[in-house]
């Protein structure tokens, strides 16, 4: 039981950080991003390049990776997303898919298909809870997700610009009418959201051990699902969604086995996603059915008209 919980929390923290990036971008700009997984992956490759090839210390490499991720997110917003102001949201989704594929191709192009390895700085530190090996970065991910999920909103409230970001999520048109430069809001939001993806990728790498093209995407997709489960606009919801999916995964592999194949986690995620989405879609109808018992006879007080 504790084992399931610990494992779930460790994974859930990572999902939650991805989910936070998704929610931030969606809230601030109304765009659902599918590109942030690859942004994370390529940032990780960049860290590998800085540490393993250039020989910089891990911390510098990590900072460089996060900076590159933020830069990529910002550049993408500035060059492409900005032109899609009045576009159908689905077209914008496809645009982010295209950017993800572009980055995936770039990973192949610059680093090839063979996996790379980035040595984490704290390889030898770990502790054990109920037979689960817990490593510091996993705890860091969880704590970070917790802090961002519940603290980011109040941090944003402190500055005028941050307030503008929160307001833009509620009503982008009105934000312009009070004089907040909306384009700077969207640029910031994309950069920060992408930076979070870089961070999430860095934190999960030591557990996986190798970097391969598209590798963060699998985690990102679960993070995306977590964001949707958490309501897509709520930062605390993103954290909760991530943790719920993480625990559901570890619980399913513990109690359901794996049905003879790996990858059951995706079915679990998909099921939770569908249950939550359909539940939300049907909820108003169900509530209405419950609230208004069908009146048999219509009231006909004002019926009739000149014949």
């Amino acid at each position: 039981m504790l084992q399931v919980l610990v494992l779930g929390l460790m994974n859930g923290g990572i999902y939650a950080i991805f989910a936070l990036g998704v929610v931030l971008v969606y809230r601030g700009t109304g765009v659902l991003t599918f590109a942030h997984g690859e942004i994370g992956t390529i940032a990780l490759y960049f860290a590998y390049f800085l540490v393993a090839k250039v020989g910089l210390p891990w911390s510098i490499g990590a900072l460089g990776a996060i900076a590159l991720a933020a830069l990529l997110g910002g550049a993408f917003e500035f060059l492409f997303v900005r032109r899609m102001v009045n576009a159908d949201p689905v077209s914008t989704v496809v645009l982010t898919v295209g950017f993800g594929l572009f980055l995936l191709a770039a990973e192949f192009f610059f680093f090839g298909a063979s996996p790379r390895n980035l040595e984490p700085p704290t390889k030898h530190y770990f502790f054990v809870i109920d037979n689960v090996v817990v490593r510091p970065w996993q705890v860091a991910a969880l704590v970070l997700a917790l802090v961002l999920g519940f603290g980011l909103q109040s941090a944003l409230r402190r500055s005028d610009f941050g307030l503008g970001i929160l307001a833009a999520a509620q009503d982008p048109a009105a934000v312009r009418l009070v004089g907040v430069p909306l384009s700077r809001v969207t640029l910031t939001v994309w950069s920060v959201g992408a930076g979070l993806s870089g961070l999430a990728a860095l934190l999960v790498e030591p557990s996986v051990g190798v970097i391969a093209p598209g590798y963060a995407s699998e985690l990102f997709v679960i993070g995306l699902a977590a964001a949707v489960v958490g309501g897509l606009t709520s930062l605390p919801g993103a954290f909760v969604g991530g943790v719920v999916l993480g625990i559901a995964q570890s619980a399913s592999s513990r109690y359901l086995g794996s049905f003879g194949v790996s990858g059951l986690q995706y079915i679990v995620v998909l099921t939770i996603l569908l249950v939550v989405l359909l539940g939300r879609a049907y909820a108003p109808e169900v509530r209405r059915r419950l609230a208004t018992p069908h009146a048999g006879a219509p009231s006909t007080t004002t019926a009739g008209a000149a014949a």
């Binding site: 659902l32 599918f34 949201p89 689905v90 989704v93 997709v221 995306l224 699902a225 949707v228 995706y266 995620v269 998909l270 996603l273 569908l274 989405l277």
Partner: peptide, 9 residues
């Protein structure tokens, strides 16, 4: 958007 997420899932 939700359909996009479900289909990629």
């Amino acid at each position: 958007l939700y359909l996009a997420v479900v289909t990629i899932g």
